[in-house]
């Protein structure tokens, strides 16, 4: 039973990971990342970490991927999606690097865990949420608070970077210099 679930979701995760990388359309890449992350969440549950699995689905597929989708659709990348990707020797080099990474990590994994090492039976104390939160809020309290601070900083930074610059303080962009016309100004307050 466990083997069956593992086989299904491992295959799904791998296939959708390949789709993420190979598909030309960023929207479809993002959507297949949802499948990858959800399958990984299922594998977390299989590994006796149900809470982490739930968080994976909530935070990753629920929040982060939605953010990605918003940006992809906001930017309207259809033109870029149609442009061809580089082929030839560079792709071979990258594929080689990927294969090397796979060989190295898989080799180390099997070598260090002695391939058929059986993990102990799952116990209530290990799976349960009580032990998890006790450890999180006692041993890892300070990192937890720092992570909260990091998220705050990230939100502020994202706002500052992505906001539209005020017209009078805005330098002309290279594109505007080249074409000699101002672009984005739906309000129309800015002189051309």
């Amino acid at each position: 039973m466990e083997l069956l679930v593992f086989a299904i979701f491992a295959g799904l995760a791998l296939a959708s990971a390949l789709t993420v990388v190979l598909h030309r359309d960023p929207v479809k890449s993002t959507l297949s990342l949802v499948v990858t992350l959800f399958s990984t969440g299922v594998l977390f549950v299989l590994l006796g970490a149900p809470f982490v699995g739930v968080l994976q689905v909530l935070v990753y597929t629920g929040a982060i991927v939605v953010l990605f989708l918003f940006v992809v659709m906001l930017l309207n990348l259809q033109r870029e999606a149609r442009r061809s990707e580089p082929g030839g020797s560079f792709q071979k080099v990258a594929a080689g690097a990927g294969a090397l990474a796979f060989a190295a990590f898989a080799g180390i994994a099997v070598w260090r865990t002695s391939a058929d090492a059986e993990a102990a039976e799952l116990t209530e104390a290990f799976v349960g949420l009580r032990g998890f939160s006790e450890e999180l809020f006692e041993r890892f309290l300070l990192p937890f608070e720092i992570i909260g601070l990091l998220l705050l900083v990230a939100v502020i930074a994202a706002y500052v970077v992505a906001r539209r610059p005020e017209p009078e303080r805005r330098l002309p962009t290279p594109l505007e210099k080249a074409t000699g016309e101002a672009r984005i100004d739906p309000v129309g307050e800015e002189a051309p």
Binding site: F6, V20, S29, T36, P86, A104, A106, A109
Partner: peptide, 30 residues
């Protein structure tokens, strides 16, 4: 039950796919 090493191999494969993608694609989102 599934040996833990299988999960590690799967993770390594996914990491390799991600590496190749990050190196070959030109679209920033991808």
């Amino acid at each position: 039950s599934v040996p833990v090493a299988w999960y590690l191999v799967l993770a390594a494969a996914m990491f390799a796919v991600g590496t190749a993608g990050a190196l070959t694609r030109r679209n920033g989102i991808t």
